[in-house]
């Protein structure tokens, strides 16, 4: 039981922070399928800087987690500029721009990883080895039955994510900027009439999504995979998009969706292990989160409403 909660949370929270990035971007009116690419590229920059710094100063890569996290956020944000420029300045189709960015991210990071490994480290390898970030347990709280598992074996990034998530919630719903952002996705003309630059708002929303995705990607790299390689493109970015659509573009319901994914995923693994079935049966339990989502959507998505101006290119002259 405890492992379900521990593993579920450590998967759900990075997914959640990525989905929040998606919400920012989509609420501002920019369709964002590029989360997958952002998280991969962010994780690449983070891993690269960690490996390079470790190499230069002779420190252990595992201790550079926070440095990597910082660079991953910068990297994700930097890469998201492409999506922002393409879909806002160049008025490209946002869906297509997103897909292209995913393809480019996979291609670029795979190429650069092998190239840099060969040039800097003289090794023929397609990954950067990172190790797993250390975990901590809060004594006392961890002894509470059931809920105690929440405070057991916590990755530091989970705390960071929760803090950022609360801040992101506050900004989106309680500040002027958040109001302008949400209005840009519903009725950009009125935002413009109020004297606010729609393009600027949307640009920053996309950058925020890149930053948060980079953070999420680095968390995945330091926990689940313990390395950076093309295996980072497991489709978690798309899962985050599914979560935010499931959550009807609102932060709290999206959290519920992410937790559902996380617990269904760890629960499936747990059941197949508990029943001591052959390993191929694990695959069968892995579909649990996805089947659950589809079933729940049948009941809950009648009232789902995307932001009204989502995906539309903002044209000042158009009425």
């Amino acid at each position: 039981m405890d492992t379900i909660i521990i593993d579920g949370l450590s998967f759900a929270l990075p997914l959640f922070i990525m989905a929040i990035g998606g919400i920012y971007s989509e609420k501002s009116g920019i369709t964002n399928l590029a989360l997958e690419g952002f998280q991969g590229f962010g994780a690449f920059i983070g891993a690269l800087s960690a490996v390079l710094i470790a190499n230069a100063y002779g420190t252990d890569v595992e201790n550079l987690f926070y440095v990597a996290l910082l660079f991953a956020m910068i990297g994700g944000m930097g890469f998201s500029v492409i999506h922002a420029v393409l879909s806002i300045k160049f008025k490209a189709n946002q869906v297509i721009s997103g897909v292209v960015i995913n393809i480019l991210a996979l291609a670029l990071t795979t190429f650069l990883t092998t190239q840099i490994n060969a040039l800097v480290f003289g090794a023929a390898s397609d990954k950067f080895r990172l190790g797993v970030s250390e975990r901590f347990t809060i004594e006392g709280l961890a002894d509470i039955p059931v809920i105690g598992a929440v405070f057991t074996d916590v990755y530091p990034f989970q705390v960071i994510i929760i803090v950022i998530a609360i801040f992101a919630w506050y900004v989106l719903y309680k500040t002027r900027f958040g109001l302008h952002l949400r209005a840009s996705g519903e009725n950009p003309h009125s935002v413009d009439a109020a004297g606010v630059d729609v393009a600027k708002i949307r640009f920053s929303a996309v950058l925020i999504s890149g930053l948060l995705s980079g953070l999420a990607g680095m968390c995945f790299a330091y926990s689940i995979s313990a390395q950076f390689s093309s295996s980072i493109y497991m489709g978690y970015g798309f899962l985050a998009i599914a979560a935010l659509i499931f959550g009807n573009w609102k932060i709290l319901p999206t959290l519920a969706a992410c937790l559902l994914f996380g617990f269904a995923k760890s629960g499936g693994t747990f059941i197949s292990q508990a029943l001591a079935l052959p390993s191929s049966f694990t695959d069968l339990f892995m579909i649990l989160p996805y089947v659950l989502t589809l079933l729940l959507l049948i009941f809950f998505s009648k009232s789902n409403q995307a932001p009204r101006a989502l995906g539309e290119i903002y044209d000042k002259g158009k009425r």
Binding site: L33, G235, F238, L239, I241, A242, I245, F246, S280, F281, D283, L284, M286, I287, Y290, V291, T293, L294, L297, I298, S301, K302, N304, A306
Partner: peptide, 22 residues
């Protein structure tokens, strides 16, 4: 049911992948 096709197709991708692998 007004389920966004992007979500459905992503979910079905995963389901197909795991079931067929099994």
């Amino acid at each position: 049911f007004n389920i966004h096709e992007v979500v459905t197709t992503i979910m079905l991708n995963y389901i197909a992948q795991y079931v067929i692998s099994f």
